[in-house]
Amino acid sequence: MTEPVSNLQSQLDSGKFVVTGEIGPPKGVNVDKCLHEAEAYLKNSVAAVNVTDIQTAVMRTGSMAVSHLLVSKGIEPVYQMVTRDRNRLALQSDLLSAYVLGVRNVLALTGDHVAMGDHPAAKPVYDLDSVSLLAAITNLEAGRDMGLDTKGNPNQLDGAPRFFKGACVTPCAEEVEPQIIKLEKKIEAGAQFIQTQAVYDPAAFEKFMNRISHLKAPVLVGIVMLKTAGMAKYMNSSVPGVNVPDAIIKRMADAAKEDRQKVSIEICGELVAKMKHCCQGAHLMTLGWDHCVPEIVKAAGL
């Protein structure tokens, strides 16, 4: 095993159950609020904080800049990187840039299609996909880029980065085998940790974990905080691979408005508690309720 490049990697290497959080940069230059919340609620509760990359294809401030700002505040970022918006030149360049700005964790994603976002007329790039992006990162680490020199040999870098490379998977997709095969490819291409799409069904997740027991990368189960019953229903109908059981929806529906956050924290805590035996960590997606993270961690008995 190589020397860990980040706190996240070393914690996972140590076998400790790891929690990560997530922030979304704003649409605009006022980054203070998200930085403040990261500092106030996440810094001491989680091992690292994901910074989304133009999430759901809604244009906003970039992941690299905000990741760098987190570094400067002593918070370890997980730099999310999607292949939707940049070709291989830009992606490789941004990786080098992020590295020199102190970023060490990278999560390689394909990214939601531009059709899902607020610029549907944009040209989707997808020069690389998540697998080839991971391969490209591994390649950079080896001191090479994807290009060839005039003799046909790979270009050599003047100083190679080293990243802790992550990938994602949808454990509760209706057809899970193609997801698993692709996950295998991601790991083969260099992925070292896995964060998952939101999971609300511990039994199904355990089944999934059993199916990937041959894969050695640590898995952080994804939990999205439910804000209302309506949101849960919307996720069921519209977010692929997410299934919120009726019992959870009912709990949210039965909760008084002022109690919803509390109930949601309880639900998240219980979910983590029920799944922590079969995975290596949890990735909490709080969608702005970052202040709840400490209570969730507590509720999960961590």
Binding site: R84, T110, D112, H113, A115, M116, P124, Y126, D129, S130, V131, S132, C168, T170, A173, E175, P178, Q179, I181, K182, K185, Q197, P240, G241
Partner: peptide, 13 residues
């Protein structure tokens, strides 16, 4: 829709 070459993405529904 993304011209992917390595398999399904998370948007398969």
């Amino acid at each position: 829709s993304k011209s992917l070459i390595n398999g399904t993405c998370g948007g398969t529904n």
